[in-house]
Nucleic acid binder design. Sequence first.
DNA 1: ATCCAAACCGAAATTTCTTCGTGAATATTC
DNA 2: GAATATTCACGAAGAAATTTCGGTTTGGAT
Lengths: 237, 237
Amino acid sequence: MPAKDVITAQPSAAPQSDNGWDSLLQEISHRPKRATERKQDRSKRTEQQILTGALRVFARDGISRSRIADIAAEAGISASTLYEYYKSKEDLAYDVPLSHLAEFFEGYHAAAANKTTRERLLLYLVMSADYAREHAEWARLFYLEIWPSIFVTDTDLRHSINDFTRVLLFLVNDAIAEGWIARDRNLYETVALLTGGINQIIITWLLYRKPRNLTKAGTEMAERLIAMLEIEAGATR
Amino acid sequence: MPAKDVITAQPSAAPQSDNGWDSLLQEISHRPKRATERKQDRSKRTEQQILTGALRVFARDGISRSRIADIAAEAGISASTLYEYYKSKEDLAYDVPLSHLAEFFEGYHAAAANKTTRERLLLYLVMSADYAREHAEWARLFYLEIWPSIFVTDTDLRHSINDFTRVLLFLVNDAIAEGWIARDRNLYETVALLTGGINQIIITWLLYRKPRNLTKAGTEMAERLIAMLEIEAGATR
DNA sequence: ATCCAAACCGAAATTTCTTCGTGAATATTC
DNA sequence: GAATATTCACGAAGAAATTTCGGTTTGGAT
């Protein structure tokens, strides 16, 4: 079944291509962890402590200023032991956000079940903002350092970042098929608009703690964006 | 004259408060350079060569991976000499984008003269994208490393980044006064929408070179954003 | 031409990341 | 449950980069 079918499918009240949806979210929230799994319980614990400590230190000092020695101390191990787990500081930095991303997608997948496309889109934007608020350290690392970094070539991470966009692409596609987002607008431009709008709110909050209430602001922005797209579709119909 | 006047002023065909506009752009495009000016011609040349070399190396390798020795080599000086000019690598990284920013604001100020608020807003967004295209190395450094960095405390740079938003705030304020942007919408949310939309296009271009034609995509996005705001204002009037 | 400050550089110090050899802890096999 | 193998941990040494320091050269005013 060519991907084009998603675009040319018939509009319907319930979101079409639910199979595509579930398999997409399935794939996204269960991306394989690293190939080499830890053998002993002790080291699974240590691995978790490294990730926790690294997240705290990276978020506090930024990747560049963070010191391996500090992270190791947070994790209660020596610096050299850390190299048994990650081959470099960069490698560690790029692994830290992955588990949170999977968690987000998993939570979203569950919350979006049995919803219309419009509700799913709204929920996605709202949950993005809300997850950033709930996991501010992670959000700092992810939105301010990882996402914009052109040097993220680590494939797992790059995939996960692209997944963020893929979900939106899927939903906007459905919305176009359902007729409430303008068909004659560039698909990627619409996605950029949605991503940009919500991310800008998140980034501003991370940098300046304004707006005070990120959940409220994210919801407002999400509702406004969707309403605008609907009006636009109506105006050009 | 309190700042509120900008908000409560009468709508008019030509943009009101042109004095405020000119003094804002004036201030923005002529932020003071560093306090200690170089004394000899030779070192003014060297300073320029450092900035040029640093921009190239930072854009190519990223701030973190860039080496002072490489930058010094590009500038044709020894590494230790570089420390006569900048007290650290970070310091240098944060100084590099400043002159380009001033140049952008200066160019915009000239281009925006004798235009309506709507034209000015459109021009601002379009020129932002276009300037990034024309100065891709600078844009990489600025949009992907500097802007999102929470650790930019260097006041000059922080000011300049905020200036980017201040111009939009000013224009949206005028547009609200003129009645073509909804008054009942949060001002900062509208600015976030504009900034986010256009930045997302720029960032995607920097990361993936898509869309191919950034100027065209930026123009499309800018026109769409403004049209949406106008429709929104009409719908809620 | 002389003098002084500014600019420059090589070498050394410092800081941080990373590797390596070895010993301790844990799991597996008999 | 002892012997063996594997995994995990660490201190010390090595490597790579930033930054400092002392002394030399250069530019420009007098």
